[in-house]
Every structure is written in C-alpha cells, then in structure tokens.
Amino acid sequence: MSNDENPLIIRIDATNDLVVVELAGDLDMETTPALTAELKAVLGARPVVVELSGVEFMDSSGIGVLLGAHREAAAEGGALLLVAAGPRLQKIFKITHLHKVFALHETMESAVASLESPLEIEGAPVETVVPGFTTEPD
C-alpha cells in the first residue's frame, strides 16, 4: 500500500496522567518511521493509549512498531494500551496471538477505565527486534 493514498495522520493529546495517540490512515513501512519518532517522544512513566480505529491498513512493520513501543513503555514504568474497535484489526491481533501481549480494548472508555486497576498483560517477546526501538539506552 502506498501512503500517498492513505497517509498516516497522527494526533497526540497529552494530559498530566495520560497520552492519547490517535492514528488515521495506513500504518505500513512508509509511515512507521514517523509513528516511531512520535511514540519515542511520548513514552515514559505515563500510560499511552493508541487509538487505532482510524487505521485502514496495518502491515507487519506497524505491528513491529507497536511491539517496540510496548516494550519501551514497560521498561520505563509506563504502559501502552491499544484501542482497536474494528474487526479487521481485532483479527490481526488474534491471528498473531498479540491480543495476549497488548492491553487491547474496543473503546477509548474501556481503555481509560482499565487504568484504574493493574494491567494483566504479557511482556513483548524477547526476540522481537524492532527498528527504532532498542533494549539498550540511547
């Protein structure tokens, strides 16, 4: 897919307790470098909720960026939660068994409400190698 047809639009809303990253368009090899840069800038001790409902297409590079961000957020004492309302993205996460790794929600409201209790998710696989995210400090 070419990002000329569906460029990735990234909107970030950072409050004191939460960062919301809203995505729209295609999340693919051409658009993931921009998302990686934006996520690296906001990851930390605050929870980050990535709203994927506007994503029309996501390939393995998009999944890789989300895995890297998940790992980095956990390493910094934060959390990465995903909102994937559509059946297409839900299916991608289930087929890849990543619904067991990510805190995956169908609505923004359920993602925010889940922050009131401890998250019960698995860490990203150790063997995951994701461009832009490393396990060593920069």
Rank of each mutant, 00 (worst) to 15 (best):
A24I: 11
L89P: 05
I10C: 00
H70C: 14
I92D: 08
R71S: 10
G64R: 14
E122W: 05
I95M: 12
M58D: 01
V55A: 05
A45G: 04
G54L: 12
I12M: 02
R88M: 08
L66C: 13
A75C: 05
A85D: 14
F102A: 04
L81S: 11
G86S: 06
E120V: 08
V129P: 00
P125A: 02
A69F: 07
R46Y: 02
T107S: 15
E120R: 13
S60F: 08
V19A: 02
P118L: 14
V50A: 01
T96M: 08
G44E: 14
I95K: 04
V83Y: 03
A124N: 04
P33C: 09
G25T: 06
A14G: 06
V50S: 07
A124H: 10
E120T: 10
H70D: 14
I10S: 08
A79Q: 10
E72K: 11
L81H: 11
T128H: 00
A24Q: 15
H97P: 00
L35T: 11
G78F: 08
A41K: 14
D26S: 13
E51H: 14
A85P: 00
I92H: 03
F57K: 10
I12W: 01
L98S: 02
K94L: 03
E5Y: 04
G132F: 01
L23D: 00
R11A: 15
E116V: 00
G78S: 02
D4A: 15
F57H: 13
S61W: 08
A124M: 05
A24M: 12
H105M: 05
A74T: 09
A45S: 14
G25A: 07
S60Q: 11
L43W: 00
E30P: 01
L89I: 11
E76F: 08
A103R: 01
H105V: 02
L104M: 10
L27P: 13
V130N: 04
I10F: 04
V112G: 01
